[in-house]
Amino acid sequence: MIRVVLPAHLKTLAHVTGEVKLEVSGQESPVTQRRVLDALEARYPMLLGTIRDRHSGERRAFVRFYACEDDLSNSSPDAPLPERVVAGEEPFIVLGAMAGG
């Protein structure tokens, strides 16, 4: 179970209040940023295009990804996420940068 924390605007869009919990299996392939976001957008299609570009898949410029007190924004989207995120002990945090609106 992957825990995802969304920023307030995206929680409103997705009609959720707390953390989002996603089933992303790490048994056959690593749990990565791309797989988590794929699962997030599959469950909440209204978020398509709000976190990453719909076509290139690139993170939007003013969106950041944090986990386990690290900034993963510029990590490869195919890099394995930290084990504590995969284990559901820490959330994968999506947030808006301190500029951009």
């Binding site: 605007h9 995206l10 209204m46 709000t50 719909r54 003013f62 940068a97 609106g101």
Partner: peptide, 27 residues
């Protein structure tokens, strides 16, 4: 729209009482 999260289109079918996102794929 907004600088953080890009472009969305919202649609209401009841005069603005409720809204739903529709397509935002402007390629």
């Amino acid at each position: 729209s907004g600088g953080w999260f890009g472009q969305l289109i919202q649609r209401s079918d009841d005069g603005g009482k409720s809204w739903n996102t529709v397509g935002n794929d402007f390629a």
